[in-house]
Simulated assay, not measured.
Amino acid sequence: MSYDELLALVCDRGGYAAPEQAEQAVIAVLQVLASRLCPELAQTLADELPVFLAAEFEDARRGEAETFGTAELFRRVAERMGTQTTTARWDAGAVLSSFA
């Protein structure tokens, strides 16, 4: 899937008014996931991402994979986006369902 196709899909699923909003959500979710995934799984995901997003994702990877659940994932996405956790839950759903 191309970068533009991904943004269009996230826009549709998230109900965003502009692709820039979808892009912000995609980057925030991928950056949080980067800290959670083991190196092998992270590489598998990076290999499937458009080049720009793969670079964002790999830049966010540091050291060992952290262990945290969905509540912490939503909290971190909210922190990166400057939103509430409820909104971040919606954003994460729009992004992750677009990769499914």
Rank of each mutant, 00 (worst) to 15 (best):
S98F: 03
F57I: 06
Q21M: 15
E23T: 08
Q84W: 13
F52R: 15
A94Q: 04
V10F: 04
V32R: 00
A78E: 01
E48C: 14
L41Q: 14
F68E: 13
V51A: 09
E56Q: 11
L73W: 03
A28V: 05
M81K: 04
V32L: 00
F74Y: 07
L73T: 02
L7S: 00
A34T: 08
Q84N: 07
E56C: 06
D4K: 10
G63V: 10
R36E: 11
A18T: 14
E5H: 08
P19R: 04
T86N: 13
E64R: 12
F52Q: 08
I27W: 05
E23D: 07
R13C: 06
L49E: 00
R61W: 15
F74P: 04
A100F: 14
L33F: 03
I27K: 11
G82T: 06
E23W: 03
G63L: 10
E56H: 10
R75C: 05
A34V: 14
A94C: 10
W90Y: 11
E20C: 14
Q84V: 14
V51Q: 11
V77L: 06
A46M: 05
A92T: 10
V51L: 14
R36T: 05
T85G: 12
G93R: 02
R75K: 13
L49M: 09
A18W: 10
R13Y: 07
L6W: 03
L7N: 04
Q21A: 11
L45Q: 01
A22F: 01
S35C: 13
D12I: 13
L9W: 09
D91K: 04
A28H: 00
W90I: 12
L41S: 10
V29N: 00
A78P: 01
L37A: 04
L37T: 05
G69K: 04
C11N: 11
G15K: 04
V29S: 02
F57P: 01
E20I: 09
Q31L: 12
G63C: 06
D59L: 14
V10W: 02
L45N: 03
F52P: 05
R36L: 14
P19W: 03
R36Q: 13
P50S: 05
R61C: 10
R76A: 00
T44M: 15
